[in-house]
């Protein structure tokens, strides 16, 4: 029994799960249609999926004390890259691959400037944020365009009701496994917890960080492409800082400290769920639109606080 409790306390994601379950129960009681209707669940899944996908990239960067502020703008740019590649005559699947490569290239630039020139990633990616926003607006002329692909491909890439959530769940599973069970993951955490120590142990911390920026860029691009397919339209003002900050909030709520050193992908997924539950829950119980952000913001703060307090308790119990 003591052993079971002990192993549960070691479980990092425990505190945020508690927060998510409590919130779900509250909204289910406040509005019976909250969870148990298909429309509501689909709506919830479509909020959670993009946040969770971008949060995966943010988590692996935040572990190393870095951040990618440009993720929301890569999200807006990638579907336009896909659009122009299709227009240039490439078949849709190849255009998707090309757009993902473009998103990854943005990540590579972020990584190289941050690591090689030793510019804080907050600054690097802040610059990239504005630069990409301008680029997207310029190449699109500021007007949305349609998505051109076969129905099957469109269905798989996000048109299907839960397609985007399935993508998010797959990426979260793979990334969670990789962070926990591969050399890359172990080295990412080690380099984040003790950068000098990790390099003294022979880990190539600089290359590792650059790779993680590339992964973050590619994931943000994938998210933008999935969203474009889902709403059948490519909007130059999509994404932006809002989705990026939601992703960072999901990561933090999920237990990845902004200061770095540790982090969990599954936690970020549950963090995205907490945000989604708050967002949909308040909408369904009919909060006034003006007070919505006020309450949502307060609830995010309380959720983060609860998580930190439960986490502190967890660590104290695990040591004693």
């Amino acid at each position: 029994m003591a052993r079971t409790i002990n192993s549960m306390l070691r479980w990092r994601e425990l505190s945020v799960i508690v927060v998510a379950v409590v919130l779900a129960i509250y909204f289910q009681i406040a509005n019976a249609n909250f969870l148990l209707s298909n429309a509501s669940l689909q709506n919830l899944s479509q909020f959670i999926a993009p946040v969770a996908l971008i949060a995966c990239g943010e988590v692996i960067l935040m572990i190393g004390g870095e951040i990618d502020l440009s993720a929301g703008m890569v999200y807006a740019l990638a579907p336009f890259l896909m659009y122009f590649l299709t227009r240039a005559g490439l078949p849709a699947p190849l255009a998707i691959v090309g757009a993902l490569a473009g998103a990854a290239a943005v990540g590579a630039v972020n990584g190289m400037v941050t690591v090689l020139l030793q510019v804080p990633s907050f600054v690097t990616t802040l610059g990239m944020l504005f630069l990409l926003n301008g680029l997207t607006l310029t190449i699109s002329g500021g007007t949305p365009v349609g998505v051109d692909a076969s129905p099957t491909l469109a269905f798989i890439m996000g048109r299907g009701g839960y397609a985007e959530f399935v993508w998010a769940a797959l990426v979260v599973l793979v990334m969670h496994f990789m962070l926990r069970n591969t050399r890359w993951g172990l080295h990412t955490i080690a380099a984040g917890a003790n950068p000098v120590g990790a390099s003294e142990a022979g880990i190539r911390t600089r290359e590792l960080k650059m790779v993680n920026f590339v992964i973050s860029g590619a994931l943000a691009g994938l998210t933008g492409i999935l969203e474009a397919f889902r709403i059948s339209s490519i909007d130059p003002t999509a994404g932006g800082t809002h989705i990026m900050f939601l992703a960072v909030a999901a990561a933090v709520i999920g237990g990845t400290p902004l200061a770095g050193g540790s982090g969990t992908i599954a936690g970020a997924m549950i963090g995205a769920m907490v945000l989604g539950i708050l967002n949909d829950g308040f909408t369904l119980i009919g909060i006034n639109a003006f007070t919505f952000d006020l309450i949502l913001g307060g609830a995010i703060l309380v959720a983060m606080l609860c998580n930190i307090l439960i986490g502190r308790y967890r660590r104290r119990m695990a040591v004693s």
């Binding site: 050399r183 172990l186 955490i189 080690a190 917890a193 003790n194 000098v196 120590g197 003294e200 142990a201």
Partner: peptide, 24 residues
């Protein structure tokens, strides 16, 4: 092998992961 003053340990990793760091 060297044991540096900062010990090159990653605080958020387990004892066994630290013993095998970069030699997993």
């Amino acid at each position: 092998e060297c044991v540096y003053q900062d010990l090159a340990l990653a605080n958020s990793l387990s004892v066994y992961h630290n013993i095998f760091l970069n030699r997993e």
